[in-house]
């Protein structure tokens, strides 16, 4: 079993290049257990590449990622990855249930078929994301938000302890956004860890406990309250000042509102 007290994800001096162009240089940080973590930074900062590098989906030129203190190969099943929706052919002839069942494949040998237990787990995962009614639906007939929920249900069916998600909130409807927030709560309550690439600065405070700021390098990593400072945001989003000022203003306002709410 996975040791709950161990650090779920530790990234050590990770560097990634694409065609000799540096994408990420010397990124190191640790993610505490049982928290929701946002990876934030401007477009092209290497957020998705960081996640892919961690999962071994893109070659890294230096550094490594440790999962509960061990390399990924030993901890495959405790780590679930949710890629961006655009990656696959949504016209593929397959229904929702079959996609969710793929989350169980890590536990199956190549000649084995999913059994009733796997089906029960998949059904529970769909129920958790309010997608039970869609289990027989062709994936080509789903809306963007529903597609995202199918991906999340699949990750949930893997019954992992660490969840890495690439922009789960991108382009989803309100119902899906609520479903994802519910999912975060549920996963945290079970002591699981969620790491997401996130691009909406306004919601970071609301959804996440912890933030990792990157822009080709690591800018800061730590609890949201500590690292989301004007100074750090300036370093991360430097050069996009007008946009940034507006954003920080919004950010302070939302923090202020939260403070009022707590009173």
């Amino acid at each position: 079993m996975t040791d709950r007290s161990a650090i779920p994800l530790k990234v050590e001096q990770l560097s990634i290049r694409y065609h000799h162009k540096p994408v990420l240089t010397d990124v190191s940080f640790e993610v505490p257990a049982g928290k929701t973590v946002a990876i934030i930074g401007p477009n092209g900062a290497g957020k998705s590449s960081l996640l892919k590098g961690i999962m071994g989906l893109t070659p890294v030129i230096q550094g490594q990622a440790l999962f509960f203190g061990e390399p990924l190969d030993k901890k495959r099943l405790t780590t679930a990855y949710v890629p961006q929706r655009e990656e696959i052919d949504w016209d593929f002839p397959i229904d929702v249930m079959d996609v969710v069942l793929m989350g169980r494949h890590g536990q199956l040998k190549f000649w084995q078929r999913p059994n009733q237990n796997d089906r029960d787990i998949a059904e529970k995962a769909l129920w958790d994301l309010q997608m039970s009614d869609f289990s027989d639906r062709q994936i080509s007939q789903l809306s963007g938000g529903q597609q995202q929920r199918v991906f999340l249900a699949r990750a949930l069916a893997q019954q992992a302890s660490l969840y890495l998600m690439d922009e789960p909130f991108a382009g989803v409807d309100v119902a899906t956004e609520k479903a994802i927030i519910e999912l975060f709560k549920q996963l945290k309550a079970q002591g699981n860890t969620v790491v997401c690439v996130h691009h909406d600065l306004n919601t970071v405070h609301e959804y996440y406990d912890y933030a990792v700021l990157i822009n080709a390098r690591l800018i800061a990593a730590g609890p949201v309250d500590e690292v989301l400072t004007k100074d750090n945001l300036n370093k991360t989003y430097g050069g996009r000042l007008s946009l940034l000022n507006e954003m920080t203003e919004q950010l302070y306002r939302s923090q202020l509102n939260q403070a009022h709410d707590q009173d």
Binding site: M55, G56, L57, R76, P83, F92, I94, M102, H105, Q112
Partner: peptide
């Protein structure tokens, strides 16, 4: 017939298959 489930996963979504250790 034997490798059906694996072939389905690697065909549908290669990067998911990689993340599952396939």
């Amino acid at each position: 017939a034997i490798g059906f489930e694996r072939l389905k996963t690697v065909t549908f979504h290669p990067s998911l298959a990689v993340s599952l250790g396939i």
